[in-house]
Simulated assay, not measured.
Amino acid sequence: MSISSVNAAGTVLDQYQLKDSAPKSNELGKNEFLNLLVAQLNNQDPLSPQDNGEFIAQLAQFSTVEGVDKLNTSMESMLSGYQSSQALQASSLVGRKVIIPTDKAVVDTSETFKASLVLPATSGNVYVNVYDSAGSTVSRVNLGQQEAGNVSFMWDGKDASGNTLPPGTYKFEAQATYGTETKALYTMLPANVDSVTLGQNGGELMLNLAGLGSIGLSKVQVIGQ
């Protein structure tokens, strides 16, 4: 490579220098990398010029630094858009009812409570025990024989004697018998969304449920009215 070629290369590289101020950290940014490369070209030994292959490799390094910088900018933009989407979801969920996998629910006993359970295989005897906040059994919902799948059930808010119980948090224990075995079942119960917490750094949106605590949006099965 001749001296004139080196100077030409330096002139071309000079065109790409940005006029930004010095970096605020000790990291080597793309501007500093470019300045070092140009300085190397301007100060190399004319009798022993830089090898073409090495020069191309350094330009490739600069291209990589430039690409990483643009990728970081794009990722920041995507994250910002995702957080905006989360905020929109949050505003639409507050005050609505969701169906989640849990065994507890806040029940308004003046109305019929509707929920469902997951039955993995057909059973001749399916039932749901209802417990109050003190852990005492207050009622049982008998469903008899049921086919495998999601099985709906209802509770009228009354105890075994037909007395209406006070509103509050109740536990629902679904079970099914298979011969001499009794197996516990998953229940899908409704809950009201009081508020939401936006995920930090792209994390999951958390729903704060009335009387039940928080749960991730990914665990919600159904979003109701």
Rank of each mutant, 00 (worst) to 15 (best):
E27F: 13
Q200I: 13
G211D: 11
L88M: 09
T122V: 05
L79Y: 01
G168P: 09
M78L: 08
N52G: 12
L117C: 11
N208D: 06
L119E: 06
E173F: 00
T197R: 06
N163V: 09
Q15T: 13
M154G: 05
V38L: 01
Y186S: 13
L13V: 13
D14P: 07
L165F: 06
V65G: 09
V196H: 02
V118T: 15
D156Q: 05
V38D: 05
A39L: 03
D14W: 04
E54Y: 00
K97F: 09
N150G: 03
T102N: 11
V68R: 12
L198I: 13
I100P: 11
Y170Q: 07
K114A: 12
A90S: 03
S139R: 15
K183Q: 09
A90W: 00
A134I: 04
G144P: 00
V6G: 08
S2I: 08
Q225V: 08
T197E: 01
S5H: 13
V118S: 14
P190Q: 04
T122P: 01
T180A: 13
N150E: 03
T177V: 09
Q17R: 12
P190Y: 00
S133P: 14
F62I: 15
V12T: 10
T112M: 10
V98D: 00
S25Q: 09
K30T: 13
F172H: 11
Q61M: 11
T180V: 11
D20L: 05
S4R: 12
Y178R: 06
V130M: 05
S5L: 13
A60S: 15
G95I: 06
G216L: 02
T169D: 04
P49D: 04
P120V: 09
A148W: 00
V94N: 10
N42L: 01
T64F: 02
K104A: 05
S2H: 10
N208I: 04
T64K: 10
P190K: 01
A160T: 15
Q40Y: 09
V6I: 15
P23K: 04
L71S: 15
Q225K: 11
L41M: 05
D69Q: 07
R140H: 11
L209E: 01
L119F: 03
E204V: 08
R140I: 15
N31K: 02
S85R: 06
E54S: 07
I3E: 12
S63C: 02
N72R: 13
S195P: 06
L217H: 05
L41G: 10
S84P: 05
S48N: 07
V196P: 05
G202W: 00
V222L: 03
T73K: 11
N35I: 12
P190I: 05
A176T: 03
T180Y: 10
V151A: 02
N72F: 05
V138N: 09
T197M: 02
Q58D: 14
I56Q: 10
L217E: 08
S152F: 03
V222K: 08
A184Q: 12
Y131A: 04
R96S: 12
N192A: 13
S84G: 14
G95F: 02
I3T: 12
Y16T: 12
